[in-house]
Design a protein around this nucleic acid. Structure first.
Length: 473
RNA sequence: GACCCCUUCGUCUAGUGGCCUAGGACAUCGCCCUUUCACGGCGAAAACACGGGUUCGAGUCCCGUAGGGGUCGCCA
């Protein structure tokens, strides 16, 4: 299980109590990038020691989210719970070595301790009452927890790769629980042992773990191990600067997928949240791997901005192959229609993709904008189209229908010159013909270029759609 | 409350003592392109939290204040 000490090993270690949320996704991305940049390993560990809250659905959601984001991991996924016996064993070893002790304080006692500390304005810590007490004084019938004997004087310093040197006085750190009364290991013990056993060299995680790093450093030392390098990245905040909540976008990555975002765009966005490389904004994954480093990570929390994500996603939409887009958008369309696309409709969709993708900022919007290519007549008109199709416009459409029906070659240039000639003869502006045409053909006031639309729809369908709206009286 | 951390345009950021008259991007506003909507082009407005030092010189270093965040579980 040990990796060569010289090469970089990072890990992402979510607890499967919910989906892979956006903050976790960024943490995973940074770990992945750092490992790939150094040609090291990126490993995945599921911290499922909380049996009451861990679920298989959450595990699946996290794995799916990682795959969707394109963050592949090395080696097998480690399930922390499966290693519990090993963790417990190390706690007992610490006990035998005199580096840990049994504590018989009841939950009620601890609560009193906290209440008292709060009342006196002191930090709320366990007072170490069983640290040096004779085990013979143990109350009968109480299962003890095992606590680590933390140093009581001096200070602990960590050289954080993002935060810089951070020091805390050891009297701020209480004797943490290693093994619960029921004999199961706590998170603090499990992370340290697993990170060590997995050969993790760099622990890159959220800022909320910074204070844990001090206690974990002491545990490493008690165990006789060298602590890994730490990098605590700032948390992501909501648009209003407050902690990210669901309302702010603290959603699972699958929610972003369902909203029509492209994984490459989300990756780019997340990368730029708290990390920068000069003036670069659009950064490919290859470039990100080449450029990523920890000292480019900022120290202050960043706010999540959907508007910028939308813009970035639009950029990626325009750069993505139409074939890829087609595959992604087709199921969305078929779900909307509740049936499969006919061959003819699929062909139109394919041809229309180029013009469509430039106008959509996400896949959902792309699907919506593409609907007119695949639905059957008569087309429903939206309010704007309805407004365009006044009597005058409908009559003009009737005359245009006649002009178009005799056209020899149904191609973009031929269509354009035919419409322009028609406009000439009508003595109106191009828009006076193009907009009614657009409304009749797409059922909306916006669409890709009208001649492109006509070409893709084909003569028969166009003429029929125009006839549906035209007034020949 | 205690401890730790943070603070450049509305937002993400560049900036590591003189290159800063503080740069880029998104958003906003104007103009151009244009059959619509996007895209694109050009331009505008917009920030060093505040107060003290240090220095010939500070956005960059130090101290304080204010504001924000994180942590204080037999959760992870």
């Amino acid at each position: 299980m040990n990796a060569a000490p010289s090469s970089v090993v990072t890990r992402f270690a979510p607890s499967p109590t919910g989906f892979l949320h956006i903050g976790g996704a960024r943490t995973a991305l940074f770990n992945w990038l750092f490992a790939r940049h150094h040609g090291g390993k990126f490993r995945l560990r599921i911290e499922d020691t909380d049996r009451k809250r861990s679920t298989q659905e959450a595990i699946d959601a996290i794995l799916d989210g990682m795959r969707w984001l394109g963050l592949d991991w090395d080696d097998d996924v480690v399930f922390q719970f499966s290693r519990a016996e090993h963790h417990a064993e190390l706690a007992r070893r610490l006990l035998a070595d005199g580096k840990a002790y049994r504590c018989y304080a009841s939950p009620e006692e601890l609560e009193e301790m906290r209440a008292l500390a709060r009342a006196e304005g002191r930090p709320m810590r366990y007072d170490g009452r069983w640290r040096d007490r004779d085990p013979a004084e143990a109350p009968p019938g109480v299962d003890p927890v095992i606590r680590l004997k933390m140093p009581q004087a001096g200070e602990t310093e960590i050289e954080d790769l993002v935060q810089g040197p951070v020091t805390v006085a050891n009297d701020q750190l209480d004797d943490m629980v290693l093994l619960r009364a029921d004999g199961t290991p706590t998170y603090m013990l499990s992370v340290v042992v697993d990170d060590h056993d997995m050969g993790v060299t760099h622990v890159i995680r959220g800022d909320d773990h910074l204070t844990n790093a001090f206690r974990q450093t002491q545990l490493y030392r008690a165990l006789g191990w060298e602590p890994p390098a730490f990098a605590h990245i700032p948390l992501i905040h909501g648009a209003d600067g407050a902690k990210l909540s669901k309302r702010h976008g603290a959603l699972g990555v699958e929610a972003y997928r369902d909203m029509g975002y492209l994984p490459a765009a989300l990756r780019n966005y997340l990368l730029r949240l708290g990390w920068g490389h000069g003036d670069d904004e659009i950064i490919s994954t290859e470039q990100a791997i080449g450029w990523f480093d920890l000292d480019g990570v900022g120290k202050s929390p960043a706010r999540f901005d959907f508007v910028k994500l939308d813009n970035l996603n639009g950029v990626y939409m325009r750069e993505t192959d139409t074939a890829v887009l087609l595959d992604a958008v087709r199921p969305i369309i078929e779900a909307k229609m509740e049936r499969k696309l006919s061959t003819a409709a699929a062909a139109r969709l394919e041809r229309g993709m180029e013009g469509l993708r430039a106008r959509a900022k996400n896949l959902v919007e792309l699907a919506e904008n593409a609907m007119f290519y695949v639905i059957d007549r008569p087309l429903p008109l939206n309010a704007k189209a309805e407004k365009i199709l006044k009597d005058e416009a409908r009559q003009r459409l009737g005359r245009l229908q006649a002009a178009l029906s005799v056209i020899e070659e149904w191609s973009e240039p031929a269509l354009e010159s035919a419409v322009r000639a028609f406009v000439e003869s009508e003595g109106c502006k191009l828009g006076d013909a193009a907009q009614p045409l657009r409304a009749a053909l797409s059922g909306s006031n916006t669409s890709p270029g009208i001649f492109e639309v006509m070409d893709i729809l084909g003569r028969e369908e166009c003429l029929a759609r125009i006839a549906d709206q035209a007034c020949t009286a």
